[in-house]
Nucleic acid binder design. Structure first.
Lengths: 155, 155
DNA sequence: CATTAAGTGGGGGAAAGTGGGGAATTTAGG
DNA sequence: CCTAAATTCCCCACTTTCCCCCACTTAATG
């Protein structure tokens, strides 16, 4: 389970150091291979999974009948933006420019690595801050839908 | 069960000594590992649980469908602010700067450690005082919502 | 008053994060 | 087909942060 937020630098070579505490979780049968893809509903962030975990999801999506319009669209989003990569010796990955653009990540700036349960999300620092504020406001509003939901969780 | 209030110092390194009487309760199968997170509805305090206790909650939240807006917001708040840590040899934890800011905790000042049943709450001294006064006033007011609730508890 | 436990402060070593150089591979051009 | 240029990958080295340990002060206990 991944959790917690880290700010790390996207260096001038487009590399990001994955926080050390996540690395063990990303290590699997085939070394430190991860799947990186963009958020399937257009949120300005990237998703990262251990490769073999996301592979199961991708296989399931790949087996949907392709002549169904909706399935085809889903397949397009899932597969066209899927990237397989290994952590280097220092625990970093190189983010492709397409992915960087989607998430608004600028070389040389700070980005947020956010553990979110079964996956890790990658945000620009500004976006992460903005989303957090929005979510916090929604949760503080006693009339919001999300307040009703969280009340059910019995924390 | 945790209860009672202690005032301790947040030192210049961001460390807080957990009152000794709570330490045994925080000790569990995996040493003295605790979960620290911010209040999920924005109250200016931190929550602390024995790790394995909060882990159950987190796993449950992590399994909610991520493409549902409300669940996604809840997951973001719960996971991004979750921190796992061990008490050091002196029974202290280091509070990350993000958490300190949320609760208005200033290095070098006194903070309040409040046992609150299943969890321990961490407040700045001022905030703890302010909240206590507000709660006291609400409970003294016979027309308040909280007065109606407490009457049902058969204390 | 003595002794132990609790709380506080600070220093040293290890690990994490960051930057950059050079080998290897790929791409382009003559 | 060979050479040159560019890109990618891997490794080394530096810097900073964090964690663990030691020591002191203060408070509680008998």
């Amino acid at each position: 389970m991944y959790f917690g937020t880290n700010l790390v630098k996207l260096d001038t070579k487009g590399r990001v150091a994955i926080p050390a505490r996540h690395r063990e979780g990303l290590r699997n049968s085939s070394g430190s291979r991860v799947a990186v893809t963009i958020h399937p509903q257009g949120e300005k962030c990237l998703w990262m999974y251990p490769w073999d975990e996301w592979e199961k999801t991708a296989l399931m999506v790949g087996n949907l009948p392709a002549l169904n319009k909706q399935y085809s669209q889903i397949q397009h989003i899932i597969f066209s933006n899927l990237q397989e990569m290994d952590l280097d010796g220092q625990g970093r990955i190189v983010l492709p420019s397409k992915h960087r653009e989607h998430a608004g990540l600028v070389a040389g700036e700070q980005i947020a690595i956010i553990g979110k349960g079964r996956r890790i999300e990658i945000w620009s620092q500004q976006m992460a801050q903005q989303i957090e504020e929005e979510n916090m406001l929604a949760l503080q509003d006693p009339d919001s839908e999300v307040s009703a939901e969280i009340a059910n969780l019995n924390l």
